[in-house]
Simulated scan of single mutants.
Amino acid sequence: MTKYIVLLRGINVSGKKKIKMSQLVAMLESLGFSEVSTYIQSGNIVLKSNVASPIKVSQIIKEGIYTTFGFDVPVLAKTFIEWKEIIAQSPFEEHNDLETKKWYYVLLQETPCKELINNLQQEQFANERFVISNSCVYLYCDKGYGKAKCDNNFFEKKLQVTATTRNHRTMMQLLEMGKQISEQ
């Protein structure tokens, strides 16, 4: 079985697309996923599956959410190995907790086209810096994400890919949760 970290985009935000985590876990288990656990109410999931493709896992969950809850939600799945690699490749250096609150990971569903990456890397923004990899945009927001021009929608538009963003703390928590799942 493969361990996955799964991210849902845009649930339980401003009272829209509400999903109780207990109902989400029950739905995922009914779809054949095991050792399902969630972190906070914004759609962060750790689970195991016999399905070997992250894209297929995303499709199964996306269809399950539509059938069960009646709305379309972008779903991004990464294997636990991919997750560890994304964190290991981060250009962020460990500092104090205040610094880590300015670090964000814009996780990409697919690899953007090289031309779009090159064009975006030419742009610069006050108080924001980013590094683009094949699977993630590492974003530093000096003034915090709430005031950032380079938000999730910005990167989706510029790179023409589906993405979802998580802060450093959430990334590390999901990493720890993934370590707790058995290897069998």
Rank of each mutant, 00 (worst) to 15 (best):
K3R: 15
G178S: 06
G10Q: 07
Q124I: 11
K147S: 09
M177W: 05
E183A: 07
N96G: 14
E128I: 03
S182H: 13
V46Q: 01
Q124T: 14
T2M: 15
L7A: 09
L31C: 10
K56M: 08
N153F: 12
N167Y: 07
S30T: 15
Q109E: 15
E29F: 05
R166T: 04
Q41N: 14
M1H: 13
P74I: 11
V73H: 03
K20T: 08
Q59S: 13
N152F: 06
E85N: 15
Q121G: 09
W83Y: 07
G178A: 02
T162A: 01
V57R: 00
Q180H: 01
S58P: 01
I117G: 04
V161E: 09
L8W: 05
I87Y: 00
Q124W: 02
V46N: 12
I45L: 04
V25P: 10
M172E: 01
E85I: 15
L108F: 03
K18M: 15
I19D: 04
I86M: 15
Q160Y: 03
I55W: 08
Y39M: 01
K102F: 03
L31M: 12
N134C: 12
N152C: 10
M171W: 05
N153T: 11
K102C: 00
L76N: 14
V73E: 02
I11D: 06
A148D: 01
L108C: 05
Y66E: 14
M21K: 11
E82H: 00
K3I: 14
W83E: 03
I117A: 07
S53G: 10
D72K: 14
L139K: 12
I61L: 06
A77F: 10
F33N: 08
V106T: 13
C141Q: 05
I81F: 07
E115H: 14
T38C: 14
K143I: 05
S182I: 11
N119F: 08
S30P: 05
L76A: 08
W103K: 12
Q23T: 07
C113A: 13
V57L: 00
G144S: 14
V25D: 12
G15A: 06
M21P: 00
Q89Y: 11
N153W: 06
Y66N: 13
N127D: 13
H95D: 05
I81N: 14
I65D: 11
N118G: 01
S42H: 10
F69L: 12
E128G: 07
T170G: 02
H95F: 04
K48E: 02
S58L: 11
G10R: 06
K158S: 08
Y140C: 06
I5N: 00
P74C: 07
Q41E: 04
A26C: 09
F155H: 13
V131D: 08
V73Q: 02
I5L: 10
M1C: 13
G15N: 07
G32L: 11
I181E: 01
V25H: 08
C136H: 04
L116A: 06
N44A: 06
K147C: 05
L47G: 00
I45Y: 11
T164M: 12
N119P: 01
F33P: 14
Y39A: 08
Q173A: 15
E63S: 12
N118S: 15
N127Y: 09
S182F: 10
